[in-house]
Nucleic acid binder design. Sequence first.
RNA 1: GGAGAGGUGGCUGAGUGGUUGAAAGCGGCGGUCUCGAAAACCGUUGUAGGGGCAACUCUACCGGGGGUUCGAAUCCCCCCCUCUCCGCCA
Length: 422
Amino acid sequence: MLDARFVRENIALLKSALQKRATDINLEEFSSLEAERLRLTRETEDLRNKRNVASEEIGRLKREKKDASDLMQQMKAVADRIKEIDEELNSIEEKTSAMLMVIPNIPHESVPVGKDEDDNMEIRRWGEPGKFDFEPLNHWDIAERLDIIDFERGAKIAGARFSVMKGAGARLERALMNFMLDLNTSKGYKEIFPPILVNKESMTGTGQLPKFEAELYKTSDLELYLAPTAEVPVTNIHRGEILDEEQLPVYYTAYTPCFRREAGAYGKDVRGLIRQHQFNKVELVKFTKPEDSYDELEKLTNNAEDILQKLNLPYRVIVLCTGDMGFSSAKTFDIEVWLPGQNRYREISSCSNFESFQARRANIRFRREGQKGTEFVHTLNGSGLAIGRTLVAILENYQQQDGSVLVPEAIRPYMGGMEVIA
RNA sequence: GGAGAGGUGGCUGAGUGGUUGAAAGCGGCGGUCUCGAAAACCGUUGUAGGGGCAACUCUACCGGGGGUUCGAAUCCCCCCCUCUCCGCCA
């Protein structure tokens, strides 16, 4: 969420920023509603002041056993008027906050302007895509041959886009979680295991609601949603809090399952593990001072890359253009891993700086040493990494001609020393 | 699920419907004292939004939302959360 005052005072700037993001919000309407809101606020505050003064006087008169019925009569009228204005104010605020809630974040100046994913820019590559002297298979073919992922039974149990991990596949899934959590915590991220069901306030705090309800699973008898990413519960840890300057930056890492409806992705990635309704992910989350957040974004991205390097998986880093960025983000780097079975790079991590956008929604502030007042923190997060897609990358990059898959050295300790899945 | 108790400032904890933004204590900050520190003493110490160049001033906030009243932390209703006991359960 953007600051209401900022919006009404920067209409022009916003217009061009929002154009870049291919959204249309009626900013003039917002502005005039805001002006009305301010006018009414002043009026009601004046009336309240009048009433407060009079009420005190009434109290004094009564203590002195004098008649106050005249004044009380007058204040009754004032109270009615206050009520009237407040109702008007409520309806205006409902509108303005609803508008404010669906305005996306303003892209950082370093973000390339573009329309869609074709305008994203590659920043760097690491590793060489491996050469195979046989035709590399898709991960679902590899997995089915090894009987480590069962898509059919996943569909039977739950539906399309669900799967059952079995044997060495299940073990590998677990090994990857532990490997990533251990690596992340060794870099100073505190391990978190949060609730996976979250309330509406949390979803609103990080920006999933109110705009993206269709992407979320919601429980029927309770107002609880299944988290689509650990970003939601972990960022909301500090919702409504004022942090001390010396606490910052705060680093968290969390493994959680993630649940996404994938509405509107009907034709996409229907086979395999790439796009599932339920998947596992290890997330990195940071709370920083505003002046540090872009350095911290670089570091966070590097931390995610390090996981791929330790697994010796080739990848590239791209910066998303204005048209492809998520709603809440000011700047996003995607890390894409090389998948020989698809002969292309696929997203495996998305690292974003939300600046104060989420912090303002979730009201997460900090206080500078020796200074009056508070400021919003900047929040960041990135996958470190998506487990299922990492497993896919391992299967495809480490596959051998005989259909077996080598276990990357870094995770052999987590696999009980297993060197090959056959 | 049943029965009860309670949610007040960074923390502990008072609060009869009328200077209560809120006693007191602790903590924090500043000062006096000291070579320095502790102790003691004095002072200060919430957030947000309006107005003003500023000093300052107004408004709101005592879990959340409604209501009663000239006036609500205090009374009424709904919701949320915490605690205790019983039952059930991993």
